[in-house]
C-alpha cells in the first residue's frame, strides 16, 4: 500500500479504544433531520446514532453542515433567527424538539465547547461556578468549591490555576482557556459534551493536551466532536460520520471509515483529494 505522508499518522492512531464501540448503548438517535436557515436548507435527512461513553467525530469540508447538526442536538440553533429543524433527535429516547422539553434543561444535560475559547469576563473560579450557580446545584459554598475543584481537575487545569482561582479567566493562554471552558461545561455534570472544532484556534501542544483530555473524558461522557483535522478524528474518536453538502455520506467505526470507506467521496476526502 502506497501512502503519502499526510495519511500515514492516521493509520498509526486508529486502533485506540476502538474495541469499546460495537455494543455500546445509543445515547443520541437522530432520524431524518432537516435544518433550514430561512429558505436555504443546510441539512438533508440526516440519520445518525451516537453511542454512549465514546467519542463520535463529525468530519467533512467547510459548510457541509456538521456544525449545524451539532448545534441542533442542544437546540442552539434556536438562537439563530429564521432557523427551522424537522425530524427527530432523541436523547435517551426523548425528542429534544418536543414541546415538553425546556431548552434550558436540555442544555444543562448537553454541554457545549466552542471553536474559540469563550471564557466569561470573570475570575477562573466564577467561570467554573457559573453553571452550578444558575442551576442551583451546590447547596453551599464548600460544595461549590468542591465542584469547581473537581471540574478543573477533570479538565486537567487544576495544577496550573489552583493558586490563581480569583484572577480573570481571560488572562489564561488559549489552550488553558479552552480547558477552562471544558471545566465550565462539565461542572454541571452533563451527559453529553458537544465540541465544535475545539482545537482549531490552538497550537499543536495545546491541541495534544485537549485531545488527551477528550480521551479521558470519554469514560464518563458521550462526546460529539466536529473537527477539520482528519488526523484528530482518527486519534480521538471511536465513531466517525462524514458529511458532505448537507448530507450524511457515511458513518461507522473510525477504523473502518479511515481504512475501508464504502463511499468514494469519503475515500477522496480522507485521502486529501478534496476538502
Amino acid at each position: 500500500m502506497a501512502h503519502d505522508t499526510a495519511t500515514a499518522p492516521v493509520h498509526i492512531a486508529v486502533d485506540r479504544g476502538h474495541a469499546a464501540l460495537p455494543n455500546a448503548p445509543i445515547k443520541i438517535r437522530a432520524r431524518d433531520v432537516n435544518v433550514f436557515y430561512g429558505e436555504k436548507q443546510a441539512l438533508f435527512d440526516v440519520s445518525l446514532d451516537v453511542p454512549e461513553n465514546s467519542v463520535t467525530a463529525l468530519i467533512g469540508p467547510s459548510g457541509c453542515g456538521k456544525s449545524t447538526f451539532l448545534r441542533s442536538i442542544n437546540r442552539m440553533n434556536d438562537t439563530v433567527a429564521g432557523c427551522k429543524v424537522t425530524g427527530r433527535i432523541e436523547l435517551d429516547g426523548e425528542d429534544v424538539n418536543d414541546r415538553s422539553i425546556d431548552p434550558v434543561v436540555l442544555r444543562a444535560r448537553v454541554g457545549m465547547v466552542f471553536q474559540k475559547p469563550n471564557p466569561f469576563p470573570k475570575t477562573i473560579f466564577e467561570n467554573v461556578a457559573y453553571g452550578p450557580r444558575i442551576h442551583g446545584i451546590a447547596s453551599g459554598k464548600a460544595e461549590l468549591e468542591a465542584i469547581v475543584e473537581s471540574s478543573l481537575k477533570r479538565a486537567g487545569l487544576w495544577t496550573e490555576v489552583a493558586d490563581r482561582l480569583h484572577q480573570p479567566g481571560t488572562g489564561l493562554s488559549g489552550g488553558q482557556q479552552q480547558r477552562l471552558v471544558i471545566a465550565r461545561a462539565i461542572a454541571v455534570s452533563p451527559e453529553v459534551i458537544l465540541m465544535d472544532e475545539p482545537c482549531s484556534a490552538l497550537d499543536p501542544i495545546a491541541t495534544a493536551r485537549i485531545e488527551e483530555l477528550i480521551d479521558e473524558l470519554r469514560n464518563q461522557y458521550c462526546i460529539v466532536i466536529v473537527t477539520h483535522s482528519m488526523a484528530q478524528a482518527a486519534r480521538v474518536s471511536q465513531k466517525t460520520a462524514f458529511f458532505h453538502l448537507g448530507k450524511l455520506v457515511e458513518a461507522g467505526p473510525t477504523g473502518e471509515i479511515f481504512t475501508n470507506p464504502r463511499d468514494s467521496r469519503t475515500q477522496d476526502y480522507i485521502t486529501g483529494r478534496f476538502g
Binding site: 442542544n74 442552539m76 434550558v104 442544555r107 444543562a108 454541554g111 457559573y130
Partner: peptide, 15 residues
Amino acid sequence: VPQSLRDGSLAMGAT
C-alpha cells in the same frame, strides 16, 4: 459584547 459569550452562557443552560 461578543456573541460567543452569549452562546457560551446559553449553552450552559442559562436562560
